[in-house]
Design a protein around this nucleic acid. Sequence first.
RNA 1: GUGAAAGUAGCACAAUGGUAGUGCACUAGACUGUGGAUCUAGCCGUUGCGGGUUCGAGUCCCGUCUUUCACCCCA
Length: 476
Amino acid sequence: MLNVAPPSGMRDFLPGELSHRKYLENVIRKIFEIHGFVSIETPAIENLSTLLGKYGVEGDQLIYRILHRREKLSRALGSGSPSETDLAELGLRYDLTVPLARFMANNRDLPRFFRRYQLQPVWRADRPGKGRFREFTQCDVDITGTKSLLAEAEVCGAVSSVLLELGFFDFTIQINHRELLKCLIAAAGLEPSFEEPSLVAIDKLDKIGKEGVWKELLERGITASQAEKLLSFFQSELNCKLPENETSKSPQKEAGEFCELSRLENLLDNSPAAQASKKPLSQLKDLLSIASAGPAKGRLRFDASLARGLSYYTGPIFEIRSPKCKGSLGGGGRYDGLIGMFSGFEIPAVGFSIGFERLAMVMDELNLFPNLPQNPEVLICCFPEISPSEVVRIATILRSENIRVEIFPETPKIGKQIGYAESVGAKATVILGTEEIIHNRLTAKFLSSGEQITLPTPEAIIKIKSWFSKAKPTAV
RNA sequence: GUGAAAGUAGCACAAUGGUAGUGCACUAGACUGUGGAUCUAGCCGUUGCGGGUUCGAGUCCCGUCUUUCACCCCA
């Protein structure tokens, strides 16, 4: 037998799952639009020249490449030992940020401060695992054209607002600053060439602890004294304490965050990096106070060990954390250089991406999705002597009343048809026989009570609707 | 990319190396214009695939594919 499962890391969605995803999508769209963001879409496929070199070495390897076709393929294969670049010039998009940068460069007459959101699938040739897929939806908000920290505060506020609207309160947003990280690395006496490996190691602090990071730093060629110095900048405990009452909509202020920032400031005071660290430190303080005036109030946590993998970040970086989810529920940051790689001149930008798949997963676990019936409300059952056109005529009348109507397409015994109505979650059946057609009446049965009526069509419709209003929503 | 475990009916699972089964689901019937419960009957399999050991393999061995879990990395 053929393997009928979708390819590894890709999924089919059942009606019930899809209704949850659509609900999530609708809430996200509503909240982002209230925050003044407009929606765009870009193609699934981009030129490899657009995608490559933006995500770091590891990222590039995870891009799905699209093989040349026909003549181009034969030509490439014929040229001795073809390289990856000979065989493909197109790839599936890896995220939505790089396509946005290309989009900005390609559309020069956009508003000077362009606020866009984008909800589309992306593809990564990664090994799938729990909550990790090869095809997954990303959900980005970005503001381009300004270096103002207001933009950071706005994107943090927008994603916080989404989570709150969804009834998800148990989260924080960790913040840090790429420039600050560079300062810390420099202050530990490390050359800039050690920045990337150091960042990767530091990012794991909350997972593998100080000893683990220390070991990893040494493995990457950093001396023991440098590693010790570097680690001394970080708190031993993970700084992601959540609001005391997790159902609280308005948690405490971020007083502790300012203390932590000051602590770091003092530590750096006498180092050569002291001067360079002033700007990121003050930006983080500003961000804390600006964002606290909006929906992100009480959610921000300064975490000096937050690094994030993508290489294009230049300023503040963020990540959503929750004890309900092992990894992150989303993240983002400022990337002032990326758009310039396409347009030739710099356009600063900051963005935040909600981990749509993880959020959907966590919400399922916490039962945060409302009951979203999408199954038919009425199943029309009929006797063999009724002509199909009669049935369609009746269905059309009911549908014009905004009732979700399914027609049973065959005419076995009525009992079978009613049984089917039950199994698909219909609330009522309409039973059509010769009597009903002749007298222009409807016979309707309310399945949960068994109550059955035969009335002239308009009265019957009123009765059916009255049943629905007292029926519990059912989802199949 | 590394390590571990598991693949048997549509689904969930059984079967000391000796006839492949049970439940759910599905189909039909138990008063020919009325569902849910119960009962009866029926349908459903190249035991992931390919080799090997054996008189005999779902079971043991090797390979392979797929899936799940844990690392790695990420959202």
